[in-house]
């Protein structure tokens, strides 16, 4: 589904990704771990097409298309979803207005008919309930004044409504209390399917207790330096990243 080959990317002239390879097939759940500043969020931004990130080398194929050739919204239409580590606030645009515009656009691009207002609102309310967010949040400005945890849930809610093919969750578990963590996990688990894949960026093994990954990768200095199954996460938790430093990182 997603095939990243030798990806190099820079921000403001600084090399961040330095030859990253990653293969994700349908239905798989991948977890990426790695020290702060290693390039995990950068990977998400590059995949979503954020301005300012320049790809200097390599290729990314998504569902048979050259992802890097597409506009940000076209990537979303194809089914790529990024839950941001730091979601931006948009005062003045209510969450509801935003969600409707987003879901309409994605559905239209996929040739599906738009939900009628009543039907959409029902879905939005259901999604709220699923992520344990009060419905009052639908009326507030997008992420405006939301707490860290509320922003994360809001991201998750959007994911549920958009029903993407590939979900990239950038530290959606950070800053969540234990109940919220379970909400995130059950949300993700409920969405797991044969045709939907996940890329979870996380610092904590505990998320992987709830969402069982098929693969765990360690990203350091812009490259994946180790891949394994979920036991790798446990090992990392016990030994830290420096354990990998000796041999693996050239």
């Amino acid at each position: 589904m997603l095939s990243i080959k030798d990806l190099h990317a820079e921000v403001e002239g600084k090399n961040i990704l330095k030859g990253l390879n990653l293969e994700i097939r349908e239905g798989e759940v991948h977890a990426i771990m790695g020290p702060n500043g290693s390039g995990k969020s950068t990977l998400g931004h590059v995949l979503s097409g954020r301005p300012g990130y320049e790809i200097t080398q390599g290729s990314v194929e998504f569902l048979g298309k050259d992802l890097l050739e597409l506009d940000t919204e076209e990537r979303a239409h194809l089914g790529l979803f990024l839950a941001f580590q730091y979601p931006v606030e948009i005062p003045g645009v209510s969450n509801m207005e935003f969600l409707k515009a987003s879901v309409d656009a994605v559905r239209e691009s996929q040739g599906a008919s738009a939900y009628d207002t009543v039907g959409f609102m029902r879905r939005a309310r259901e999604a709220c309930t699923a992520v344990d967010l009060d419905q009052a949040f639908l009326k507030r400005g997008v992420n405006e004044g939301f707490s860290g945890g509320e922003k994360k849930r809001n991201e998750l809610m959007q994911m549920m409504l958009l029903e993407p093919r590939l979900c990239i969750l950038d530290e959606t578990d950070s800053g969540l209390d234990i109940d919220a963590l379970q909400v995130v996990a059950s949300g993700v688990n409920a969405m797991r399917s044969e045709s939907r894949s996940f890329l979870l960026v996380t610092h904590y093994q505990r998320l992987l207790d709830y969402i069982e990954p098929d693969f765990v990768h360690v990203l350091a200095d812009g490259r994946i330096i180790r891949s394994g199954d979920k036991s790798l996460a446990l090992e990392l938790e016990a030994k830290g990243y420096s354990w990998l430093d000796d041999g693996e990182v050239a």
Partner: peptide
């Protein structure tokens, strides 16, 4: 960054601009 956020949610750039312009003003109405 707001514009980008909207686009990652599938909202086309021109529509996103409209929505953000509206929000920019509507924030005062709210």
């Amino acid at each position: 960054s707001m514009l980008h956020y909207l686009r990652t949610r599938g909202i086309p750039a021109d529509e996103a601009l409209v929505l953000l312009s509206y929000g920019f003003i509507n924030a005062l109405v709210e």
